[in-house]
Design a protein around this nucleic acid. Structure first.
Lengths: 124, 124
DNA sequence: TAATTATTGCGATTATGTTGCAATAGTACA
DNA sequence: TGTACTATTGCAACATAATCGCAATAATTA
């Protein structure tokens, strides 16, 4: 399944890049300017996650958010940091705080999803 | 809004107590034996959360799970521990691992929602 | 026992996210 | 440049989780 370059995909990445935060499909659709189908945006986002370009956060409101994969640290997996959801401005940002824990014996880890919710510095 | 004791509420608590894990509305409905309306179960669960009897975890599948509030430590708030979702047996359990972090200045914390996903010790 | 009102069941609704299918449009190659 | 291949898109339908309004029921108190 070779990827193709399309205006839609560029636009989605561009919106995420300029926001600097994690965004939901809905937020992306509002900011993107051009009219792009909901299902298409989801498919683009899912493909980017598969390719390691984005990571997915599921917030405590049950919604998926997507953010550019920027590693806190070369050795960390990109998702292993805390996320902060501001319930006032409804944004999610990646915090530069690594998630530390050690699982009990015989547990196998696949994904880490840590979301702190509250009010961000801009909304206090 | 004074609470009343009903068979439904007792049944929900009892199921959660005997399972020892966090459960979704659907899982509770299956286990509960008697026929209770979906909306009712949700309302019972939400009320218990308000009253501090249960805590709510939103897993990375976007679903809500509910668990009895048992403190890891008297000084910790009950929700500040990691949760583990086994994607094989589809259960969520509270891990005795506290979540540690320090927020940047001017952030106000309301809730903590940390879910690790993978395979639990019983499914490896 | 009667009055008050919390709780419940039912149906409808909202919202998020996915999928099937046909149409469109990148990409590679002659 | 033109053509074939197939990734991508739009649309509609679908699936599921969760909530809400309203009328009926039932727990509590006096």
């Amino acid at each position: 399944m070779k990827r193709r370059n399309t205006a839609t995909k560029e636009a989605v990445l561009s919106v995420l890049h300029s926001s600097g935060k994690a965004m939901s499909q809905g937020a992306i659709e509002k900011k993107i300017g051009v009219d792009i189908n909901r299902a298409t945006i989801y498919r683009v986002l899912n493909r980017y996650c598969e390719d390691g370009v984005l990571h997915r956060i599921v917030a405590d409101n049950g919604k998926q958010y997507f953010a550019l994969c920027v590693r806190c640290d070369e050795n960390d997996k990109p998702q292993n940091h805390f996320h902060f959801r501001c319930s006032t401005c409804e944004t999610i940002e990646c915090l530069p705080i690594p998630v530390n824990f050690s699982l009990p014996q015989n547990y196998k880890l696949e994904t880490v999803n840590c979301v702190l919710t509250g009010t961000c510095k801009d909304c206090v």
